[in-house]
Simulated assay, not measured.
Amino acid sequence: MIKESTIAQQLDHRTIRAFTKQPVAPEIIEQLVSVARHTATSNFQQAFSVISVTDQAKKQQIAAISKQPYVAANGHLFIFVADQHRNQQIGAEMGKTENQLGGADRFLQAWSDTTLAVQNTEVAAESLGLGTVILGSILNDAQKLIDLLQLPQLTFPVLGLAIGWPDQAPQLKPRLPEKFVHFENSYQLPTPVEPQLTDYDAVVHQYYDLRDANRRVDTFTNQVQQRLAMVPEKRGELLAVLRWQGFLLE
């Protein structure tokens, strides 16, 4: 049974982007990697790997890729990688030359293994009092990151995770009301959607206003509609990079 304190911790999750200079002890890093390794895995293939980026020059380059300067600052940086290369290597060493590890099914298995490991590691880190920020922004230039980390065929970077001792205490970010994300037995989105989100938009507007009065104040629905046709630079190349890595070729 999940302890009530664990649920309270998860409901109180806040993204932390500023860490103190106190380093995360090696034994904590080892413990968190152990948690990642013990995450649920599809078909027991364990199709992910974790890279600790400790080289400051590489952290700087990843910060540039992410366009998030804090990535290169204090804290420990993990890059979680979908990894079918290891299983291909095992098969090759056992004389198996044919494999389907680059197919959509195996890619999605590796992707889900990886994202589950990220979430597990984040929960564990926060249980120790650490702050965390998950970095989808590492895919702003996937090929550059692949080259930087020397990722072989049948691997692909999925998410970064920066952890450290918190040096900020941001507000709790408001989430969508349950009726828009939880349905029973079939998909039942209440429509029209946008008019029913007026109250939620007001809460989000206030959240941004209180977080930083000098920044643009926005609502949830406005953010959604602005991103409908937006393809960030380099992200339009993701399918090509995936195929270059040996995935989704069928």
Results as ranks from 00 to 15, higher is better:
Ser127Tyr: 01
Asp141Asn: 15
Asn87Gln: 10
Gln61Met: 13
Gly131Ser: 04
Thr114Val: 14
Ile65Trp: 11
Gly103Asp: 06
Ser112Thr: 15
Gly103His: 03
Gln60Ser: 04
Ile146Phe: 00
Lys67Cys: 12
Ile51His: 12
Asp55Cys: 11
Glu93Cys: 03
Glu122Ala: 15
Gln143Cys: 06
Ile79Lys: 13
Gln119Lys: 11
Lys58Trp: 03
Phe156Arg: 01
Thr132Gly: 11
Asp167Arg: 00
Pro152Gln: 07
Ile146Lys: 01
Leu116Glu: 00
Ala82Thr: 04
Gln119Cys: 09
Ala64Arg: 14
Ala104Gln: 10
Leu145Ser: 09
Ala104Leu: 12
Asp167Pro: 05
Gln153Lys: 13
Phe80Tyr: 09
Leu128Ile: 02
Gln150Asp: 06
Gly95Leu: 03
Leu161Gln: 06
Phe78Tyr: 14
Ala125Phe: 02
Lys58Arg: 10
Thr115Glu: 05
His76Arg: 12
Gln61Ser: 13
Asn140Ile: 01
Tyr70Asp: 01
Ala169Asp: 10
Gln168Cys: 07
Val53Asn: 01
Leu172His: 14
Ala142Tyr: 11
Gln109Ala: 11
Ala117Phe: 07
Gln119Val: 13
Asp55Ser: 11
Pro170Asn: 08
Ile62His: 09
Phe156Cys: 05
Gln109Ile: 09
Lys96Asn: 13
Leu154Ile: 10
Gln150His: 02
Asp167Lys: 04
Leu161Trp: 06
Thr132Lys: 10
Gly102Ala: 12
Gly160Arg: 05
Ala64Gln: 15
Gly102Cys: 13
Asp55Ala: 11
Gln171Phe: 14
Leu139Ala: 13
Val53Ser: 01
Gly164Val: 10
Ala82Asp: 04
Ile62Thr: 04
Pro166Glu: 04
Pro157Ser: 06
Gly95Ala: 07
Pro170Asp: 06
Ser112Asn: 12
Gly131Ile: 01
Leu151Arg: 09
Gly95Phe: 02
Ala82Val: 05
Leu161Ala: 07
Asp83Leu: 02
Gly136Asp: 08
Ile51Ser: 01
Leu139Tyr: 02
Gly103Ile: 00
Gly102Lys: 14
Pro166Asn: 08
Ala82Arg: 05
Ala57Phe: 06
Leu139Asp: 09
Ala92Trp: 08
Asn87Arg: 13
Thr115Cys: 14
Asp141Gly: 04
Leu154Asp: 02
Asp147Tyr: 14
Glu122Trp: 15
Leu148Phe: 11
Ile65Asn: 10
Ala110Trp: 03
Ala162Gly: 08
Pro170Thr: 13
Phe48Asp: 02
Leu151Gln: 07
Ala72Trp: 08
Thr115Lys: 08
Glu126Met: 12
Lys144Trp: 02
Leu151Lys: 10
Gly103Met: 04
Ser49His: 07
Gln89Pro: 04
